[in-house]
Design a protein around this nucleic acid. Structure first.
Length: 593
RNA sequence: CGGGGCGUGGCGCAGUUUGGCUAGCGCGCCUGCUUUGGGAGCAGGAAGUCGGAGGUUCAAAUCCUCUCGCCCCGACCA
């Protein structure tokens, strides 16, 4: 492609509103253009990169034995009512009413496709002989995000690959899951992305049955905890904290004393009012576990983890208690609950770290009052101690003796063992060898195609622009003729034709522009290999070649240049070896802001 | 949904507090000449319902009311 024949509206300045590198650079490099909040047009360069990511995903899905089909975005709302997901999704589900002669048709635009595919399988699969099977498609998904943000990272409309496995048994499901997991690893590898599969909140079957594929990035919306020593990784909801001895510090116990704290009900207010640090406060939360009130004690600076609390309490449903309930069980309005005197009234669950507190402050179970000098054993007891809070940076690793590191990350993919939730609701059953009717066991596997691009750019750019690996780059090679003289243009055109003939995706900057303009746009757009064709090199029979991540160019003889370059590109397509090496070495500013 | 910010040629902004002449600047775009290996110089030029509606006023980009849109933080969500 010639630059002048394409449509590459690069920008020197950053449009107002773009905050993070991937958004800024995609806009400036002429890859995307915003249509409205959360919806973008992919311009030619952006589309080519998107198609590359899509192609890699498709190839790996096929290689893993998944079978592609294509489902519509529209489906009848009734299908979503059958699985209860109209309510579960709420406003996130995009619903429309179609006017047809004499009637209205209620449809949903799919945020994902469990319902549609399970309905298909329910109708078309009826025997164990047809199982197992994994079906996938790549299509536009619609989610009415309350707050689209960060450019292409969180949009109302996005491209997703979603695969669904259908198995006759748990063992078979595990095999299907493993295949997808492995395929995901290859996909992220091939895209040149650093990634971290992390344990995510488990589903109805129990065990480690859900993994998120995270791309560690400064601007990621998710938080993961990672042990660099043993490799344990989990998202914040899921991350365990190693149990440890938490003896209270050996300090003199102060007397228990009630103090007035008018209007101070939050941790910040109380700590400011009493002039103590949040770690010296005990936060008392009243939950309803399957409708039964329980008290949960957490150190003031920690965050409660509802999943952990739910499991500790052995409950199916857990929710913060309503203000009336709190008032009824503690005798005080919200914000003044405390464990002192609460024993016997309701079960008390305390986080391990509460054991290590001495002379703490907490609510007095009456309005506008707290108690200080609170000590475990003397002033209150808890029936159950457990890990009830979110892990944070520096917490002990649950698998080894090291510590967890907190990292921000972009959720690029998610694999999940679904079980029978959808097959049950939509009647996807099969007849086994013993002529018994069984419910099909499902798994689902999603990858955000757009997020692959955003994640790559977030983690691979420098002050001048994007640094693409060959696998995702909109073009593999950029030719930059320096002057419009006969000899230069002839050499450029010959190389252009030779590279195209060799199957290389090549872009030639044939604009009548100054060198600086072309070089700056080359860096901005980030095509991996730049070839400069100009009188300086040509007089010695050479082109100047430079990988985007390198600082200095190298010279390459004109004779055989196309073959050499095509060889390099072929290697990079398969392995991203040079790209990876540069990233590891930090050479060329990869990853620098 | 709560808090904050911003809407002025294609892009980035000034002007708004304290109303006042044909609404400016930089970049980009068009024409010509000169230049030509890291965002050229000179000269000329096109291009703006000042987000929209209503109001106050002799006079509104500027003041008032309503409204639409975009962005950020939080909440929510998987």
């Amino acid at each position: 492609m010639r630059w002048t024949h394409s449509f590459i509206p690069t920008m020197k300045e950053t449009p107002e509103g773009a905050e993070i590198p991937s958004h800024v650079l995609m806009l400036r490099a002429g890859m995307i253009s915003q249509v409205m909040a959360g919806a973008y047009t992919y311009l030619p360069l952006g589309l080519r990169a998107l198609r590359n990511a899509e192609r890699i995903v498709r190839q790996e899905m096929d290689a893993a034995g998944a079978v592609e089909l294509l489902m519509p975005s529209m489906s009848p709302l009734s299908l979503w009512e059958r699985t209860g997901r109209v309510d579960a999704f709420g406003d996130v589900l995009v619903k429309l009413t179609l006017q047809r002669p004499g009637r209205k048709v209620h449809v949903a635009l799919g945020p994902t496709h469990e319902e549609v595919i399970t309905d298909l399988v329910a109708h078309r699969i009826s025997s164990y002989r047809q199982l197992p099977i994994t079906l996938y498609h790549i299509s536009t998904k619609f989610r009415n995000e309350e707050r689209p943000r960060f450019g292409v990272m969180r949009t109302s409309e996005f491209l997703m690959k979603d695969a669904y496995s259908f198995d006759p048994s748990l063992e078979s499901l595990n095999e299907s899951y493993e295949k997808m997991y492995a395929a995901y690893c290859r996909i992220f590898e091939r895209c040149g992305l650093e990634y971290l599969p992390v344990e995510a909140e488990s589903g109805p079957i129990g065990g480690d049955v859900s993994h998120e594929f995270m791309i560690p990035a400064e601007n990621g919306e998710d938080t993961v905890l990672h042990c660099r020593d043993c490799g344990y990784a989990a998202n914040q909801e899921r991350a365990e904290i190693r149990a440890r001895d938490c003896a209270p510090p050996d300090v003199p116990k102060q007397p228990l004393r009630k103090v007035a704290t008018p209007g101070a009900s939050t941790i910040e207010q109380v700590s400011a009012f009493l002039n103590i640090r949040p770690p010296d406060l005990i936060k008392t939360l009243i939950y309803e576990a399957d409708g039964r009130p329980i008290a949960v004690l957490i150190r003031g600076d920690h965050e409660a983890n509802e999943g952990k609390i739910r499991r500790a309490a052995g409950a199916g449903e857990l929710a913060l208690a309503a203000p009336e309930v709190i008032e009824q069980v503690t005798g005080a309005p919200v914000g003044f609950a405390g464990p002192v005197g609460l024993a016997g009234k309701l079960p008390i669950y305390a986080d391990y770290d509460v054991r290590a507190m001495a002379n703490a402050a907490t609510g007095a179970n009456e309005a506008d009052a707290h108690v200080v000098g609170v000590n475990l054993g003397r002033d209150f007891t808890a029936e159950h101690f457990a890990d009830l809070r979110n892990a944070q940076d520096g917490d002990p690793c649950p698998r080894c003796s090291s510590k967890l590191t907190e990292r921000h990350a972009i959720e690029g993919g998610h694999v999940f063992k679904l079980g029978t939730k959808y097959s049950e609701a939509l009647g996807a059953k099969f007849l086994d060898q013993a002529e018994q009717q069984q419910t099909i066991i499902m798994g689902c596997y999603g990858i955000g195609i757009n997020r692959i691009l955003a994640g790559l750019i977030e983690t691979s750019h420098d002050a001048h622009g994007i640094i693409w690996p060959v696998a995702l780059a909109p073009y593999e090679v950029l030719l930059v003729p320096m002057k419009a003289d006969e000899a230069t243009m002839q050499a450029a055109h010959r190389l252009y034709a030779d590279l195209q003939a060799a199957g290389v995706e090549v872009l030639m900057d044939d604009r009548d522009a100054r060198a600086g303009v072309k070089f700056n746009d080359a860096d901005l757009v980030g095509v991996p290999l730049r070839v400069v064709i100009g009188p300086r090199g040509l007089k010695d029979g050479q082109f100047e070649v430079k990988w985007r991540w390198e600082k200095q160019p190298a010279m390459l003889p004109v004779d055989g240049a196309a073959t050499t370059i095509a060889g390099w590109i072929g290697e990079e397509r398969a392995e991203n070896r040079r790209f990876r090496a540069a990233r590891r070495g930090g050479q060329g500013g990869v990853g620098a802001a």
